[in-house]
Amino acid sequence: MSRLSTVLNDLKSKKERGLLCYITAGDPDQNRTIEIACALAEAGVDALEIGIPFSDPLADGPSIQAASQRALENGMTVHKTLEVVRAVRAQKPSFPLILMTYYNPILHYGLEKYAADSAEAGADAHIVTDLTPEEAERWKLASIENKLDTIFLVAPTSTPERIKAVSKLCSGFIYCVSRTGVTGARDDVPVELADTVARIRQHSDLPICIGFGISQPVHVRKIGAFADGVVVGSALVNLIHENRNSPDLLTCVKEYCETLKSATRSSQA
């Protein structure tokens, strides 16, 4: 079983929800991305998504757009992101690492070579935001070849046929987008979300994690009533950016995630 599935299964048997966090590689810089990633593991985060920055992140809201732009200006590349993965993997052997990006950077790298190199660096899974099941055959084969989980997105607009198609190609977990929209912290949890999750469960036994717009413990508790995990991205990216020059950067990132994590233990319906 993959590192990611092992962690998600353990959580299930402990009746606990998963906390997944997202950070952009290279923001504020390569070394601190490594430090932050390790600090997140120590704070109890269950799995980490590391974003490979892309020049045209059309599924992302202002926070991650800006982080991607900063990272690219700092010289972050696909190769350097894999170095980050390698360094984190060396320090945290059992911490699931998911790479999140858009299709063009990995296509340009060479899909098969990228799959092999990322697996070798220690990545466990990928989310490719603009890749849907219809276009994913080659990528899926490359991922299977390298024992990488492939996570696809289900949206509130997805029809039953599409949920089936996504479930078939997903491994690890299904990423359910909380609302129609781009990434970015919001104040509320959409009321339709529980329905969307119920619709997915009709077609898949995989864990379902919810992302887009989640930033507060109250969101985590609400969503924990019906889903298996949450992904927190933009809020953390903002926190990192605001504290980039502070000596307490790692402490405040840890504290934030510890608070979110404790909400995953008190969210059973």
């Binding site: 603009d130 949206a155 607009t157």
Partner: peptide
Amino acid sequence: SNGRFGPFGGRFVPETLIPA
């Protein structure tokens, strides 16, 4: 039917847009 012109075209967008 997949919107392909030879190796070009297709659909590379977030899932949310596919039904539209």
